[in-house]
Each structure stands twice: as structure tokens, then as C-alpha cells.
């Protein structure tokens, strides 16, 4: 089953780059939102996650904060 995955990131953040690489390596399609450019989406990320650190990953509505490989794998069933 295809998952609905959104990554909220900034271009300079190393863990954001790692999250995206990890998803690509596992063949997971995702929407990337650069919160340094899109302020409305930045607010949305803060609202969803209750905090201001990046990256934030939204997998089918489940919010994961930071590059937490274990939680990401679990949410994606991989």
C-alpha cells in the first residue's frame, strides 16, 4: 500500500538530507516541503508537531520528529 509521506525540512539541515536519502533508498515517494521558503507550511509543521525542530515527517498522519530510523520504518512497515 502506498503511504502518504510529507517531509518538512530546511535545505541546510543534515538530518533532513539523511531522512530524504533514506526514503529514496527505500523507494518511498514523498512530498518535500522547504519550510525556510514556505512560511505557511512552517507554521503548519509547528502546529502538527508541537515543536520547531526539523525534520518533521508526516506518514499517513503519524508525526515523527527528527531522523528516527526505527519509528520511520515502523510507520512504513519496512
Amino acid at each position: 500500500m502506498a503511504h502518504n509521506v510529507t517531509v518538512y525540512s530546511t535545505p541546510s539541515c543534515p538530518y533532513c538530507i539523511k531522512v530524504k536519502e533514506f526514503l529514496k533508498q527505500n523507494g518511498i515517494e514523498f512530498q518535500n516541503i522547504d519550510v525556510s521558503q514556505d512560511h505557511a507550511q512552517a507554521e503548519e509543521m509547528v502546529r502538527k508537531s508541537g515543536q520547531m525542530g526539523v525534520p518533521v515527517i508526516d506518514i499517513d498522519g503519524k508525526i515523527i520528529i527528527g531522523f528516527d530510523k526505527g519509528k520511520i520504518k515502523q510507520a512504513l512497515d519496512i
Binding site: T10, S12, V35, G50, M52, G53, V54, I65
Partner: peptide
């Protein structure tokens, strides 16, 4: 921490636009 306070300006800086 992560609610405005951060140790990584490179990561989180862009969220403080304006």
C-alpha cells in the same frame, strides 16, 4: 528545547524568519 530553543542554528535557523 525545540520549542524555540535550539543548539543547531544551521538546522532550525530558517524557521525564525522575521
Amino acid at each position: 528545547k525545540n520549542k524555540g530553543l535550539t543548539y543547531c542554528a544551521t538546522c532550525d535557523g530558517p524557521l525564525f524568519s522575521g
